[in-house]
Design a binder for these strands. Structure first.
Lengths: 203, 203
DNA sequence: GTCTATATTTGGATAGAC
DNA sequence: GTCTATCCAAATATAGAC
């Protein structure tokens, strides 16, 4: 194994990765405190005892930091939905998927902004950072499929209603549960309309 | 009448108001071209043949310009829903209200961001600018009331589904109609669930 | 890998002449 | 009411010494 042949290089890589992680953690903190768009390299460096310029040894630009945050957040969501217990009842599976998504959306306002609101001028997530986002959306698609819902229109309606709940909650009552508390009822409404009741309708 | 006593002062006021309007029009243009957050006083002045500093004779700050844009946009929406023809069928009234709202949301991405996404760091609309926004929302509430829908939960669900359609459309397919085209179907789904079927349920 | 020094850009806002 | 002249602040990013 290469690891045992050259332990010094490994320790360096570990240190490097640890510092990167530390920078990202500080970035989230600062974003929560001052707003996502107000994240500044100076402040970020200061928080971890560095000059702003030294951060460039870890990230080539500020947008690269946003990109890493974007990727990590989507990966977090993906892991959560993947870790969900398998249910016999497909509706229960969809309900859990929705619950996890909404909880994820309202836990952190800045994370929500970064992932779903494109509020940073000039920042466009990289395709790699997108991967987990697409995969997470795909879990919702599968949960819908398990309920016999296959039409593209129905999937689009699902993203609209689930996304709408999160958006209203964060916009009008951040930290509360006035809208996300409607999840179960909205789910019932949705299924009553879009779920096929006979085998034929499933196609 | 004061107007005929001192016509000079009137002409000045008119000129002043016209210049303010010109500035705001240029602000919308620039925002569409470069992004809402990238609106800069220099560019704005340049567009109307002025130095940036001269703009301060018309607006005390950049945020005041955003505020005027915010107010004007909400007023525009309010006028549109108010101008809607009276319908005998309350469901038709709700449908038209929704249609106008969605059309308004997708017509301009930057207007949508300004009104519904709070994407400008440090900008908080003034209470006066809010007035029309609240009034516009109130027209939706009345349209729902006419359909016999009175519960707060049901009103919240309405803002979630209608807002969700606009949000998904703008986020994933700006300029298209993949989501807003679902409006009628979503409305049916919503009414089937929330509209009382008997007089008693209406309370 | 971190620093100092600095370049560069950007952009909001004020003072005072005309 | 518009200008010139500035100021001031913030923030990204690079060069090069240590």
């Amino acid at each position: 194994m290469i690891m045992s042949v050259n332990p010094i290089r490994d320790r360096r890589a570990e240190r490097y990765a640890a510092t990167r992680a530390e920078i990202l953690a500080a970035a989230w903190e600062l974003a929560e405190e001052k707003g996502l768009a107000s994240l500044a390299m100076r402040d970020l460096g200061a928080r971890i005892g560095m000059r702003a310029q030294s951060l460039y040894a870890y990230f080539p630009s500020k947008n690269a930091i946003y990109d890493a945050m974007f990727a990590a957040a989507n990966e977090e969501l993906l892991q959560r939905v993947k870790r969900l217990p398998k249910t016999r009842d497909p509706v229960e599976g969809l309900r859990l998927n929705l619950r996890v998504f909404l909880q994820f959306c309202v836990e952190s306002l800045v994370r929500y902004q970064l992932l779903y609101q494109r509020s940073i001028p000039g920042f466009e997530p990289s395709p790699e950072a997108y991967r987990a986002a697409i995969e997470a959306l795909d879990t919702a698609r599968h949960a819908l499929l398990a309920c016999g819902i296959t039409q593209q229109k129905a999937l689009d309606a699902w993203t609209a209603v689930s996304g709408g709940l999160a958006a209203q909650q964060n916009a009008n009552e951040p930290g509360g549960e006035r809208w996300i508390g409607l999840a179960d009822e909205i789910l019932d409404m949705y299924l009553a309309h879009y779920r096929p009741t006979t085998a034929e309708e499933t196609q």
